[in-house]
Every structure is written in structure tokens, then in C-alpha cells.
Amino acid sequence: MDTTKVPTTFWVVAALALVWNLIGVAMFFLQTNMGPEQIAALPPEQQQIYAVMPAWLDIPYGVAVFGGVLGSLALLLRRRWAVAAFAVSLLAVVVQMAGVYALTPAWAVSGASGLPMTLLIVAIAGFLVWYANRAAARGWLR
């Protein structure tokens, strides 16, 4: 039995990571299950983005959010593979976000005003990789 004491902040970060990534899963299902009527209800600028969004971008999106959930669960279970799960999630986030900006008119539609949320998502994914690495180095993960 492992008796390594972890700080309360570890459990807070792990729980918040799980909530954040579960919200990501919910958003993934909302976005990937939008029908023509839901897309028609969007502002015209967002309709432009959905009209040209390659279907394959759903793959890195799914890997990002489900990888994040797995990483969060691994943190809560204090498992070292949280590092790998979060690293895969971060890579998928970068691929998905780059794909959205490179292959759709997202930049033309939102300009710099769309960047803060994109950067926040990437930053949180990067933080979770860093935090899991730090937790592993401190012996909090097994």
C-alpha cells in the first residue's frame, strides 16, 4: 500500500481537470451531432465555418477531450500514465486548433477575438501535462 502523502491541491487540480475535460466531452458531442437545423440557427459567420470544416477534424477533437478525461482519471487514481494521456491530449488539441484556423475561415470570421479561448484551451492542456509530470517527479503517481 502506497502511503505517499499528496497535498490537497493535487486533488483539487485533478477534480477540476476532470470537470474541465468532461465539459469538453459534452461540447464534442454537441458539435459533432449538430444537424442542419442547429447549424441553420447559428450566426451566418459560424455557419460558414461549419460548412467547410473537414470531418476528420472531429478525430483530434475527440482524442483531445477523451484523452483529457483519461488523464484526469489517471491523476485521481494517482497513476503515472496520466502524463502520457495528457501529452496525447495536448498534441490532439494543437492539431485540432491548427486545423480549424488553417482549413476554415475561423480567423476571417473571429479575428483576434477568437484567440483567447483557443489559447486558454491549449494553455490548460499544456498545464495538465506539466502538472502530471511534476506529480510523477514528486512521487505522487505510481
Rank of each mutant, 00 (worst) to 15 (best):
V52W: 11
A82V: 06
G67C: 12
R79Y: 04
G68K: 05
I49M: 14
L70V: 15
Y61Q: 12
F66D: 07
D58W: 13
R78M: 08
A74Y: 15
F86A: 07
W56N: 05
L73C: 08
A51C: 07
A84N: 06
A51E: 13
R79K: 15
R80F: 03
Q48W: 06
I49Y: 10
G67W: 13
P60G: 08
A74G: 00
W81L: 09
R79C: 03
L70S: 06
V93P: 00
L76E: 03
A87I: 09
Q48N: 13
P54A: 09
L77W: 15
V63S: 00
A84T: 14
G62E: 11
L77D: 03
L73H: 00
A74V: 02
I49P: 05
R78P: 03
W81E: 02
A84Y: 13
A82T: 05
A55P: 02
A84V: 14
G71I: 02
S72E: 01
L90I: 02
V94D: 01
R78D: 06
Y61T: 05
F66T: 12
A82G: 03
V83R: 05
A84Q: 13
L90H: 01
Q48L: 15
L73S: 01
Q47Y: 10
I59D: 02
W56C: 03
A55K: 14
W81R: 00
G71L: 04
F66W: 15
S89W: 02
A74S: 12
R80Q: 10
L77M: 15
L91S: 10
